[in-house]
Amino acid sequence: MSDREQEGSAGVSRREFLKISGIAAASMPLIAGPAVLKVAGEDVAIHGPDKTPITLNVNGKNYSAQIEPRVTLLDALRQDFEITGPKRVCDRGACGACTVLMDSKAVYSCSVLAIEAQDKPIVTVEGLMQGEQLHPVQAAFVENDAQQCGFCTPGFVVATKAFLDKHPHPTPEQVHRGLGGNFCRCETYDGIRKVVSQLGKA
């Protein structure tokens, strides 16, 4: 631990990066953007470690920015595109506050790189709104007071939506495990269970 905290190697040059598997780059690109290497007879684009152009499709709109490969989908949404519904809470894929839909599946956006989320439609809690209308799941969260401080709420709303899409009439056991990937600290679970039973009956 101490050596980690005290170690001084902050960055590695591009040259070192491209050398590591013994493959020399044909030329060093001067502008950010992928270098192309010939590997096993075919071109492979190598991105980074510097910023590289990234385009995400979020809530039906395209967003582009220069972003390092190490930036997560969550951080790109929040910091580059100011889409702050998904929250950074555990940042280790353990709490659910950053849940978004990617290819219609609920995922932890803190555990996906922005660069690998390209070409996959992303829907955040903001994207569930139908114009100014709350999505039925969002409205049910309000009605059942399934939120207090509200910081887990955006992730919980998206996870609940994905869960109900898959299990329109869930059993309590399915609810317990199916919404087990999201944690709340004000502890609004009772309200969220009411949301699910209200919408699960319809």
Binding site: S21, A40, E42, A45, H47, G48, P49, D50, P69, L113
Partner: peptide, 22 residues
């Protein structure tokens, strides 16, 4: 997280060549 470079090849032969020996 430290910086890294990123590739997403389509052939497993390429993957093997892009991986390091250590």
């Amino acid at each position: 997280m430290r910086a890294f470079e990123y590739a997403s090849p389509k052939q497993k032969q390429q993957v093997v060549e892009l991986l390091g020996k250590h």
